[in-house]
Design a binder for these strands. Structure first.
Lengths: 181, 181, 181, 181
DNA sequence: TATGAATGAGGCTTCATTCAT
DNA sequence: AATGAATGAAGCCTCATTCAT
């Protein structure tokens, strides 16, 4: 945010970000397991050795990426839920924010999993306010996250209308699959 | 199945199976991306060169593994749903068979995804029979599979009662999260 | 010695020897510390990866080299001393065999040190037979080895007559530096 | 010695000394060959680039270290021999000064070798005065230095009494190993 | 067909050295 | 002058793959 930094510091921050961005891209394309440090460097304008001025391993980059995600994404992930007063608003806010973040920021399953506790807490809270049925919040949170991730993946791979997907998912979790009597 | 094969054939089948078993183990432990052909061989009593008499790449082994899964697991995965006459029976059969297969056969997300089309077809069928509400079958299938996989993973990692988990999942998808009026 | 080996075995032995020979040369030229595994490979007709089929580190090569030295050199190093009946014969045999081995086999300080115990035992034995004065055998052995190594090095570097050097060293240790009365 | 220097000069001298001290330590621990410039810098409070303001290579540092040794150690190494009037005094002074310097200053083989010429000159001188038998001074110097280094090393590694070691070495070189008639 | 050693490409990491600050 | 990050060469090691046996 603040650009009033000595030049060296600014370059360091920039290079660190180059590596994080490259890693995000590489991890998304090949998966964490298949990615190599060299792949990360190659996704960067930096020289091979420079990687090790910033991180000591692929794992450390992942950790930094997760931390970054936590800082920037988790707030956005939960923001819509805060003011939800009905279950429908809650679900709708949840799914649309996941779909949006996946599209714009390459949100991944691991990042979502990091939001598990937030979501569960919000669900428990909502259940106590009577907004939700008194279900096992952990199970519901897991179901919501898994479903959102899977559907977001499908949207990304196969295209589709985000609004419509949000509506479908919301409806499913709101009323279930039981046919109207 | 049939053991009346000439010796050569039998050994060939056995070696092929060694490789598949080794690969399944290695993929499960390290993930497909991080696994190497050497890792697979090492999980086997065979020599390095022998691998290439059966497969030409890691990818080909994965394909064979998927086919094997499809042959042996998919039937078991869908068997319970065939005779379901209510949505509740359908969901219950689905979740309990996934949880059981995960526990006994190390079923993985990819295997489940292979069951996607079956499940969607069954869902569409059921919807036409009026057993389910007329929802987007693709979205529902994705939600069910993702949820089942996630919950099965949690059961495997943290322990828990399979029957209870089945009941919770079934209830969630049957009636949704809306509180009773 | 035995050449009646299947071809594969023969090649393996040969390659192992390539590496040992390369390593001996490289260690002698640059010293053990400065030598790299790559240097060793380069002193060989083999490919880089082949090194690791035989050894896992530079250190392991050194150990093998030491073992080889012990097997082939130590007997030759001590052979002359066995039948020595006077101190003069003993010393003369010792120095001439060290000078000869250094010249023909690149004997090194470490190899000599491996002969320390042999030499000390022989010295103690000789002292008990009255061939030597009753001195501290360890100190004498250390002095003899260090002197022999140093003088052999000088001979190798600066040239000189082996026989004369043997005589000088023998005389020094036989009678000491005290002037005749 | 002189501290009346402008501040800049003083700091320069200090940094140079940091490098020399670090290098001495590193060379002693890993050997010259295995040591890297980075190792030297790391043994120093200085930054990487600073090294090159003082030296251009590891080799140059070694040269400086040798020069330093020559200046400070060689005088002490030969001081005892100056007033020796008998061979016994000469030898005793030589060995005890080597053992002492090794213990307190980490004297190394290379440093000793730097004392070779001094020692040979002293030996020749002494031989002309009739204190020593008329032996090849070069060979005797080599023998004395090699023995002293080896025994000093043993003392350092295995402990032992310096005075006793001095006596043993002196006796050996004074009278040789020949048994009394 | 099975074996396992050889190969050299390529990944990981550290190094010497430079140079903007 | 001191700093310390950037660079890319080069060392270490493992890998996929081939091929003689």
């Amino acid at each position: 945010m603040d650009n009033f930094l000595p030049k060296r510091q600014r370059i360091k921050q920039q290079n660190r970000q180059f590596i994080l961005d490259g890693a995000r891209k590489v991890f998304a394309e090949q998966g964490y397991g298949a990615a190599t440090v060299r792949d990360i460097i190659r996704a960067t304008p930096l020289a091979a050795g420079t990687f090790y001025n910033y991180f000591t391993s692929k794992e450390e980059v992942r950790a930094a990426l997760n931390a970054e995600m936590a800082d920037t994404l988790r707030p956005r992930l939960s923001e819509g839920r805060a003011q939800a007063v009905t279950a429908e608003e809650f679900l709708s806010a949840f799914f649309s924010s996941v779909f949006a973040l996946k599209a714009e920021a390459g949100l991944e399953a691991a990042d979502l999993r990091a939001g598990f506790e937030d979501l569960r807490a919000d669900l428990e809270n909502a259940a106590q306010r009577g907004v939700f049925a008194p279900l096992d919040a952990g199970a519901v949170a897991a179901a919501l996250l898994a479903t959102a991730d899977e559907m977001a993946g499908r949207l990304a791979r196969e295209g589709g209308d985000t609004a419509q997907a949000t509506a479908a998912a919301t409806s499913l979790f709101l009323r279930g699959v039981q046919p109207p009597l």
